[in-house]
Structures are given as C-alpha cells and as structure tokens.
C-alpha cells in the first residue's frame, strides 16, 4: 500500500508545484489528443451520420468492419503509420515521423472508427424517431443528416469524449510514431512508460494519477455542460 500512498502524494506534489516539465507534457498530450479528436470527429461524425440514414448493399459489412476496427491494437496502427511516414515509406518526403503531427495522425486513425461507430448508433436512434416526420415534411439528404447531428449534439459530445479518453490513454501508437523525444513528442503515456522502464514506479504511478485527473476534469466539464444544456434545451 505504501507504493500507492507515495504515488498519490507524489501526484499532488507534481501538480501543486506546477512542474514546468509536467506542464509541457500535459499540454502536449492535450493538444495532440484534442487535435486528433477534432479530426476524428469531423470524419467520424460525418461517416456515422451517413451510415445512420442511408440504406445500401454492404452497409452491414461496413458497420461490422467499423466495430471490429474499434478493437484494433494501437501498436498495429502505430506500425502502419510509422511505415507510411518513414523516409523510406510513401509519405516519407514530408518528414513527419517523430513529430507531434505523426502522433495526431495515429490517434485520429485510432479513434475515428470509435467515434463513427458510436455516432452511428446515436444518430440512428434519433433517425428512427424522426424518420416519419422528416418524410412527411419532405426533409431528406444533407438537411436530414445535419438536423440529426445537431439534435443529438449532447450525446455526440459524450461520443467524442469516449474518443478523447481513448486517445489520451493510448501509448503504443504514439510511442512508435512519436519516438518519445524529450520536449518534442513526450506525452503523458510515453512518460509513464519511460518512468516504468527506469524502475521509478512511484513517479510513473504519480504521472498516471495526473493523467487520470486531467481526463477526469475534461469529462466533468463536458458532463456539466451537457446536463446544463439538456436542462436548458430539452
């Protein structure tokens, strides 16, 4: 138990002292993961909305593939992105390997299927409620999709949060494509992995506590906004 109490007090010490190195790492973690969520939301919400309202042959297959992709190990995604971005790979000329951009790409690929699959479910439920009314009003296509996305926005916030949580917690992919370079691509999870390999388990656990607190804070803010908005807008 002493390990855990040491980790907790270590975490609070790290936070209260606002260690500049920690601040930089947390900042990079958030900007990488938030950017990945931004990109994945644009793609995932559009894909999810499209799948929710369209009916075509092969739709079931796409949904099954999306659900399967949710379980894709991050390391595999990391490896694929690594091979793509490597100087010897097809996108090597842009020199993106071992940069935050590479990490954003990997995380976006990781969470787009999650956001798309969950958004599809949310939007399709709403679609089942709205379908007859839309048909009656002659509302279809893009306008129908946009209305569905807008009307499920509070639930979709939860969906993107699920994506953010996964992005923030992910270590395998960003380790490979970012390289865990001190001050450049070191994020919360790779820092934790590094401290673990150095055998500094209390510090690693402290960083883990900080990570949980950061993600928890984001969730609480979003949850509060959601319940406030739902009470206000029904």
């Amino acid at each position: 138990m002493s390990d855990f109490s040491a980790a907790l007090s270590g975490a609070f010490h790290l936070i209260s002292s606002a260690d500049p190195k920690l601040v930089q790492i947390v900042g990079l973690s958030l900007s990488v993961s938030l950017s990945a969520v931004a990109i994945a939301s644009l793609l995932g919400l559009a894909l999810g909305a499209w799948l929710a309202v369209s009916r075509f042959a092969g739709r079931g297959v796409i949904i099954a593939v999306l659900n399967a992709l949710m379980g894709l190990p991050p390391v595999v995604i990391g490896l694929v992105v690594y091979l793509l971005l490597s100087r010897a790979g097809p996108l090597g000329q842009y020199g993106l390997l071992f940069t935050p951009t590479a990490m954003v790409i990997a995380q976006a690929i990781l969470i787009t299927p999650i956001i798309a699959a969950l958004a599809r479910q949310v939007i399709e439920d709403a679609w089942n409620n709205y379908r007859e009314q839309f048909q009656s009003l002659g509302v279809h296509g893009w306008r129908a999709s946009a209305t569905l996305v807008w009307d499920t926005r509070f639930s979709l916030v939860t969906v993107t949060l699920a994506g953010l949580g996964r992005a923030c917690a992910e270590v395998g992919a960003v380790m490979i494509v970012g390289g865990n370079i001190d001050g450049v691509t070191r994020v919360m999870t790779t820092a934790i992995a590094l401290e673990t390999t150095k055998g500094d388990l209390p510090l690693a656990l402290s960083l883990g506590v900080v990570l949980v607190l950061v993600v928890l804070t984001l969730n609480l803010i979003a949850q509060w906004l959601k319940s406030f908005a739902e009470a206000r807008y029904g």
Binding site: A38, G95, L96, P100
Partner: peptide
C-alpha cells in the same frame, strides 16, 4: 483552430 495549430507545429 486546434487542427491548424498542430499541423503548423512542426
């Protein structure tokens, strides 16, 4: 905004 910052970062 967030996306642009990150893309511009490197």
């Amino acid at each position: 905004g967030t996306t642009a910052t990150l893309v511009g970062m490197p």
